Simulated assay, not measured.
Amino acid sequence: MFNKILFHFGLTPDQYSVEPFGSGLINHTWKVSPVNGQDCFILQKINSAVFKHPFDIAANMTSLGNHLRQHYPTYLFAGALPTTTGDYLYVDEQQQHFRLLPFVPNSHSLDRVNTPEQAFEAARQFARFTHLLSGFDTGVLKITIPQFHDLSLRYNQFTTALINGNPERIRESADLIRYLEQQQSLVHTYEQIKNNPSFRLRVIHHDTKISNVLFDSRYQGLCVIDLDTVMPGYFISDVGDMMRTYLSPVSEEEKNFALITIRDSFFTAIAHGYLEELRFELTPTEKEHFVYAGQFMIYMQALRFLTDHLNNDVYYGARYEGHNFMRAQNQAVLLQQYNSKSNLFNEIISTI
Results as ranks from 00 to 15, higher is better:
H188M: 10
I262D: 08
I236Y: 00
Y292C: 13
D207C: 05
L180C: 04
V239E: 04
E288S: 13
N256P: 06
L275M: 10
V203R: 01
L259K: 15
F290P: 11
E286S: 08
L180Q: 03
S185K: 14
N256W: 05
P197M: 09
Y246V: 05
V203D: 05
D264V: 14
F290L: 15
I262S: 10
T285E: 15
F235E: 01
Q183H: 05
I225R: 04
T208G: 10
R200Y: 08
G221Q: 10
Y179R: 09
L282F: 03
D207W: 06
A269Q: 12
D264E: 12
D226H: 06
T208A: 11
T261S: 13
S251Y: 02
M243A: 13
M231D: 03
Q192F: 13
C223M: 08
Q220S: 11
S217T: 11
D226R: 04
Y190T: 09
A258E: 12
E191V: 12
K209H: 09
R202W: 13
I236M: 06
P284W: 03
L227C: 04
H188A: 14
A258L: 11
I193P: 01
N256L: 11
T268G: 09
Y179K: 14
S237Y: 15
L247F: 01
Y179F: 14
D228Q: 09
F257R: 08
T268N: 12
I210N: 07
L278Q: 05
M243Q: 04
S217M: 11
V250E: 06
F290S: 01
S211W: 00
P232S: 11
P284Q: 06
F257P: 00
I260K: 00
Y219G: 03
L214Q: 07
V187M: 00
R178Q: 06
A269V: 09
L186Q: 11
P232F: 11
L227W: 03
N196Y: 00
F215M: 00
G273R: 00
A271M: 13
P284L: 03
V239Q: 00
E277L: 08
S185R: 09
V213Q: 05
I210F: 06
E281Y: 14
F215C: 03
L180M: 09
N195S: 05
A269T: 07
E288W: 08
I270D: 02
S198E: 15
R200F: 06
Y292D: 03
M231T: 07
E277G: 01
A269F: 05
L222M: 10
D207N: 12
T189C: 12
I225V: 15
T285L: 14
F290K: 07
L214N: 01
T208I: 10
T189R: 15
Y274C: 03
E288T: 13
S198M: 14
T208H: 08
T261C: 00
R178P: 02
T189S: 13
N196A: 04
R202A: 13
R263V: 10
T261I: 04
L247S: 09
D264M: 08
E276L: 04
V250W: 07
R218V: 14
G273C: 11
R202G: 01
L259I: 00
S237I: 11
Y179H: 12
S251W: 14
H272F: 01
H289R: 08
Q182N: 12
